[in-house]
């Protein structure tokens, strides 16, 4: 397994994530966050999750950036610079320890693409084997989202609808 593509991508991800936190101007932070989303979309595509890569590229790098910029354009210029006090001592000690704990726990996760992992032996084989015969849909992601698990998708659609309505009611002020 070669790492010629993964390692630069990981470095870019960490670099943009750190840059979005460190940079002083909020607008720069928003734009760097857009770049971070784009690199994350490349990671999803590299892992074979093309559907997720699509959503990450369009929502994370595109629409969310526009939302942030529109929100920032409402604030006055002196609000968009960040003053950061130094982090408290407890955070400096506790957060690296938490990171080490998470890395230790990650050892117990099944390997990437492991066919005997619990997620791959429960209901996934049934979906993969029967999707084409049941629904004439070769893309198993679509048939799971829209047929086998369609109630979840219905509730998600309700959530999206509610969020649109809520933003309209809370934020919109008519020009007159």
């Amino acid at each position: 397994m070669t790492y010629s593509f993964e390692l630069p991508l990981l470095a870019l991800l960490i670099l943009t994530a750190a840059g979005a936190i460190i940079v002083k101007e909020l607008i720069s932070a928003v734009l760097i966050l857009g770049a971070y989303s784009f690199f994350l979309a490349l990671v999803w595509a590299w892992l074979g999750a093309a559907d997720v890569a699509f959503v990450e590229a369009v929502v994370g790098a595109g629409l969310a950036t526009v939302f942030f910029l529109l929100t920032l354009s409402q604030t006055s210029p002196e609000d968009t610079r960040i003053r950061r006090p130094p982090p408290p001592l407890i955070a400096v000690i506790a957060l690296p320890l938490l990171g080490l704990l998470l890395l230790y726990a990650a050892n117990d996760l099944p390997a990437f693409g492991d066919p005997t992992s619990p997620a791959s032996v429960h209901v996934s084989p049934h979906y993969i084997e029967n999707s084409l015969a049941d629904t004439r849909t070769p893309n198993v992601v679509t048939s799971v989202l829209m047929d086998y698990r369609v109630l979840d998708t219905l509730i998600e659609t309700v959530v999206v609808f509610t969020s649109g309505i809520a933003c309209w009611l809370l934020l919109r002020r008519d020009p007159e």
């Binding site: 629409l63 529109l70 999206v160 969020s163 649109g164 309505i165 309209w168 919109r172 008519d174 020009p175």
Partner: peptide, 16 residues
């Protein structure tokens, strides 16, 4: 519709 309405509600409040 939801995404466009969020953008509109943000931008209209800018105009106001």
């Amino acid at each position: 519709v939801a995404a466009v309405s969020i953008v509109y509600s943000l931008s209209r409040s800018v105009a106001a």
